[in-house]
Simulated assay, not measured.
Amino acid sequence: MTLISLILALALEQLRPLGNRNRVWLLFTRYANQLERNLNAGAERHGVLAWFAAIAPVLLLSLLLFYSLKAASPVLALALNVLVLYLTMGFRHFSSAYSEISQALAEGRDLDARIALANWTGQPTAELSVGEISRLAIEQGILDSYRHVFGTMFWFAVLPGPSGALLYRLGSMLNQKWGNRSGEEDPFGLFASRMAAWLDWIPVRLTAAAFAVMGDFEDAIYCWRSQARAWGNYANGILLASAAGALGVKLGDPLRQDYSLKYRPELGLGDDADSSHLKSAVGLVWRSALLWLAVTLLISLASRMG
Rank of each mutant, 00 (worst) to 15 (best):
F28G: 00
A97R: 12
L255W: 05
S276C: 09
L298V: 15
H277T: 10
N33L: 09
L199C: 04
A302E: 08
S95F: 11
G151R: 01
G42A: 06
A11S: 09
A210G: 11
D219V: 05
T29V: 01
S280N: 12
F94A: 09
S288A: 15
A137T: 14
F188D: 04
Y146E: 05
K70Y: 15
L301M: 14
G90W: 00
A243W: 02
D110Y: 09
A116R: 07
S68M: 12
L255Q: 01
A97M: 11
G232M: 02
L291W: 05
R304E: 09
V213P: 06
L136F: 09
L291P: 01
A244N: 00
I138K: 04
R205S: 01
Y222H: 13
N22I: 06
L105M: 13
V285M: 14
L83A: 14
A210K: 00
T125A: 15
F66R: 02
G252A: 08
A235C: 08
G131N: 11
S260W: 01
V249E: 02
N180T: 09
L293K: 02
A165E: 00
L59V: 09
S68C: 14
V295Y: 08
N33D: 11
L174G: 02
A208V: 05
A197H: 06
L6G: 00
Q34F: 14
F91N: 10
E184R: 12
L76R: 00
Y263C: 04
L78G: 08
